[in-house]
Nucleic acid binder design. Sequence first.
DNA 1: CTCCAATTTGTACATATGTACAAATGCTAT
DNA 2: ATAGCATTTGTACATATGTACAAATTGGAG
Lengths: 233, 233
Amino acid sequence: MRKPNMREAILAAAEELFSVNGFNAVSVRDIAQAAGANPGSVTYHFKTKDGLLLEIYQRHCVPMNLRRSELLEAAKRVRDPKDRLEAIVRAYVVPAFSSGSDLAGGGARFTRLRAIMSAEGNEVARKIIAQTFDETSHAFIDAIHETLPQIPRTEIVWRSHFLLGALYYTLVTPERVSRLACGEADGADPGEAIEQLVRSTVASLQAPPLDRPVPAGRRTAATGRSSASAGPA
Amino acid sequence: MRKPNMREAILAAAEELFSVNGFNAVSVRDIAQAAGANPGSVTYHFKTKDGLLLEIYQRHCVPMNLRRSELLEAAKRVRDPKDRLEAIVRAYVVPAFSSGSDLAGGGARFTRLRAIMSAEGNEVARKIIAQTFDETSHAFIDAIHETLPQIPRTEIVWRSHFLLGALYYTLVTPERVSRLACGEADGADPGEAIEQLVRSTVASLQAPPLDRPVPAGRRTAATGRSSASAGPA
DNA sequence: CTCCAATTTGTACATATGTACAAATGCTAT
DNA sequence: ATAGCATTTGTACATATGTACAAATTGGAG
């Protein structure tokens, strides 16, 4: 046995490749080669390619959710409601950007993986996400809601959803920010991304709620004359 | 010739399939079958699978950017700066949710396609995006910046980036909102998504800028004691 | 050392995939 | 009607892919 633990090497290689290229674009042979293993070894340890992805998720989910709970509980203990809101958002965002080997935090690599899987509509990922992440999401949403009781829960859900989308997109295309900022910002710098995301999200969460129910035929100065062709279905 | 325009049918089928399953998971044969065509027909009209994707993008880009410019110019004419900001954001968001056949608006289908391509890191898409969409993005960023001169341009870039991420994520996983809201919100309803996104983004854009330059070792009440293991790389 | 279980390797196979190309077909102008 | 062209069809091929499986290898217990 050359590698002390080939199983781990395969998992790491697969996680890296999946998180960069997606599930479909990566072959079992690609993974084996990256891990310095034989294709048959992958079958031996994980039976199928789906099984490999499943194992990657299961490897992360439990410690990650434990860690998130810890961070959330700590954030909830912050006294000043304004600070508490920011602390909660930070507890949600920071672990998602943590560097590679941090298994408990989730880490940027695994977060990027989840982003791509959700875009690809991967079935294996979809199942695990729904049964493992939603409870954590609910806990965060509840905590946020407690600091902003005047905002309907539905709106908190929307804005948290937007936060996750922004987070995913930032991890998936970090070079885009640098490009649009003409080099004045680095989308790949986790520190800056975190601060921008936290600031932006806190402000978004504090926005006054919409007047509900929303009427169907709404008009604004900008879209009023053009809504016939551009209006929602 | 059974179909009046088989080329169009193939384009439509490919666009639909790509926007749901991504580029890699869809085969030329899948597309041909969905279009009621022969696989060879795809090769005949578009030479390669990449060529087909390229054509889908080119089909949309010009009319879409024209439309976006129109909407942006109209929004910029709104006098009250507060209303103008919302109008600009709306001009950016509304066309992205417009129903299927609206070629000029871009449409939800094509936006979803772009979202998946960016997640998959598709090369063909990356090239076109950089050369076609960035100019439009700059125009929107500039327009927003003019209504918020006190915010550094870099921050506007970040927050617009988050807007796009939120928009993409909402289009890619609309069922997630419904699930987390326990049925009290419908993520697939473009009307509600648009209003939530606009409200959220306007608030985010108006947030006061960060104090820059950001110091490396930052501490907050929430993450101070835990940042050792969860801090950014 | 010897045996054994766990692992790794090499190979094979059935299928899927992108693309090429010649033959067949349908449409239009004359 | 017919020639000429664009399109469609059917098929073929080289390669890539997921998975299975038998043989080889390894490392440790007796």
